[in-house]
Design a protein around this nucleic acid. Structure first.
Length: 156
DNA sequence: GCCAACGTTGGC
DNA sequence: GCCAACGTTGGC
């Protein structure tokens, strides 16, 4: 399986790249995704070693750095916790509906790249992220797109 | 805070 | 199986 590339969105107020960086092992499970398309990518397609662009949505939409997939899809246990915001009574241990992967911090961009800037880069014009009305929180990016963005960001 | 776009739900 | 109503996402 070739290395693939992904973009993962998070509200920094919920979970930011800094939060990931400050985990004891700089690794965290990506729980809380409740969208089937995003779920399928995590359950079926993401492989250990895949590259991840970490995107902050909200007031300052921008790509802030990179991470790596370190564990392939497994059931998202938060779906079975009635106290969790993302609780889904239809998901059971025997029949889990929702899945997550583990990602590990890799790099923080010297200069985060605002969404607005991404729109101005010709090599990125086909990105799913830039499509009108896009609401996917986990989506594939091509190697070209990934490399272009990493180059724009510059490693810290 | 607004609103367009989208996914999901539920009545029929 | 259709589609209106609703809730949510997320850029602006």
């Amino acid at each position: 399986m070739p290395t693939r590339y992904w973009l993962m969105k998070s509200e920094p107020g919920e979970y930011s790249l800094d939060d990931l960086k400050n985990e004891p092992d700089q690794t965290e499970h990506w729980d809380g995704v409740r969208n089937y398309q995003a779920r399928n990518f995590m359950r079926d397609d993401m492989q250990v070693g895949d590259g991840v662009l970490f995107y902050h949505s909200g007031k300052k939409p921008e790509v802030v750095g990179t991470a790596r997939v370190v564990r392939t899809g497994y059931p998202d246990h938060t779906a079975q916790d009635p106290k969790n915001n993302h609780f889904d009574p239809k998901s059971t241990p025997e029949n889990p509906i929702w899945f997550m992967v583990d990602i590990k911090f890799e790099s923080e961009f010297k200069a985060p790249i605002p969404l607005k800037t991404l729109r101005d880069v010709a090599a990125l014009k086909d990105m799913i992220l830039l499509r009108r009305g896009n609401r996917l929180s986990v989506m594939p990016v091509t190697k070209k797109e990934f490399d272009t963005i990493v180059k724009l960001g510059g490693k810290k």
